[in-house]
Amino acid sequence: MNGARRRLVPYGLLGPGAIWLVLFFVVPMYYMGQMALRSGSLATGGFTFTWEWSNFSDSLSGHEEQLVRSFLYAGSATLIALAIAYPLAYAIALRAGRWKLLLLFAVVAPFFTTYLIRTIAWKTILADASPAVDVLKFLHLVPEDGRVLATGGAVIAGLTYNFLPFMILPIYASLERMDVRLIEAAKDLYASSTKAFIKVTLPITAPGIVAGVLLTFIPAVGDYVNALLLGGTGQAMVGNVIQSLYLQQRDYPEAAALSFLMMAAILVVVAVYLRLAGTGAFMGEEEEAK
């Protein structure tokens, strides 16, 4: 290979990804961006491009509550998913022995059914007179005259359930790669199990946690299916508002503007989070950490 060709190789490798990004990210973003700056209505001659920046403030006014709610629901779902996923991934990676593959399969198996059907199934499981809800009432987790379906709790539970594998798999991968002799070494140095976990296991698996949190949180914030099917009145998330703006109110510019604002809000949250968690952990540079 001569020098010129060698220099071209990276571009060739970038090619498919770059084309994909341009076609399915940059182009739609462009159209969404210029839709967000239009004014008018479908009934009165359509939407014209007028640099209508007020769409952004208009789309936010009256919808702050749903925006906050989205981050609250998605944040809760992410924390609960983390609390469930870490012990589970730990058990599968380090304690499952020959059951490892089967257990991993069990984690992924629900994905063989579509997202929508799985969520609708929860409507039957959590129906007011269902055995599941009776048990929750017996345990006093749900008040005697209360319900689970059509509450914020049901939406958070749905989000947690639907995105749980995205939390388990990265954490599992980081635990699987961990050298267990490091824990033994820590114990040889008189660390308690708890201390060994905090000083050794947790830092090594941090990249898995960071990745899992992002993979769960980002789709959960934008989700609208769980709120639509499992939620009731007063539980709409930003996704539901965008859907209503676009399909019911036919205010395409405001829908586009709100989509942009939500994207920006997620970007900020993720940036702050990565800053705190450290990009190094996310990029998988734990080698240096050691």
Partner: peptide
């Protein structure tokens, strides 16, 4: 290269219906 690609896309799209009204 990425910047050029973005500019190209905007240029192509602008030749299309950039200023016209949508819907109506």
């Amino acid at each position: 290269a990425a910047l050029l690609a973005v500019v190209a896309v905007f240029a192509i799209a602008a030749c299309g219906d950039g200023g016209d009204s949508v819907g109506g």
